[in-house]
Design a protein around this nucleic acid. Structure first.
Lengths: 119, 119
DNA sequence: TTTCTACACCTAAATTTCTTAGGTATATAT
DNA sequence: ATATATACCTAAGAAATTTAGGTGTAGAAA
């Protein structure tokens, strides 16, 4: 069964940082707009990161030392690329592990283990 | 590998209503304090619902018509039992389905399908 | 008999996180 | 010309939760 609408926003709360960090783990460097498009594409538009949520999050990650930035000019247009620091790579692992563990706990709590592969 | 600390609070955000509703689906009637203890026990203390979060949530569910209440006196002490309404039963299904679908999407997004059973 | 812990309900201010709703500007297609 | 896509950003408000209380009963320990 395919569910083709966005998730209610409450669910996505708390996972944004993890999503962003994990994308950066797999893609070396990315810019903000690219991240929103990539997530939208990978999730069939079920998760759409708003820019109002993304940019403050990216700035917080930079402030925390998990990412560093690099500005690149495409003609006159600016792109700000984000890249994981060594510390950021540790943070990704911690966060992804925690989320994975949390989801296992939730699967148990909600008794969802009967059908794990219904994507 | 066992992880024996509480999840960072951000992760739990947005799942509280679903947890509560699902417990009521399986237990016919429960009171607030009982819910906090049951979740703590079932998750080996990894998820601890605070009362400051729980009671407002229960009141919201009642206001929405998903649960009805019943006061029971144990001696002079009051217990307020919560029970799903018919509408509440529908709400549970919707929310649990959505969360299950969301978790599948997250598993794909974070590439976690390699080890699904490491509880 | 005081005192500590568990039980059992509750609220309210502050915090965090996100949505909504803008603003600025370039590049390209219609 | 105008609309859409690209690309960055901020700030007010909303929503959910944390933190930090308050009230009181019941039972065990000291």
């Amino acid at each position: 069964m395919y569910i083709c609408f966005m998730y209610s926003s409450e669910l996505i709360k708390g996972t944004l940082k993890t999503i962003v960090l994990n994308l950066l783990k797999d893609n070396d460097k990315m810019y903000g707009y690219e991240i929103t498009q990539k997530v939208k594409e990978m999730t069939s538009e079920k998760i759409q990161i708003t820019e109002g949520a993304l940019y403050p999050t990216l700035h917080a990650l930079e402030k925390h030392g998990d990412v560093i930035t690099e500005k690149v000019y495409i003609g006159k247009r600016v792109r700000k690329y984000y890249r994981l620091t060594d510390q950021g790579k540790k943070t990704v692992q911690e966060r992804v592990n925690e989320l994975a563990d949390f989801m296992n706990t939730m699967r148990f709590l909600l008794d969802l283990d009967t059908s794990p592969g219904n994507v």
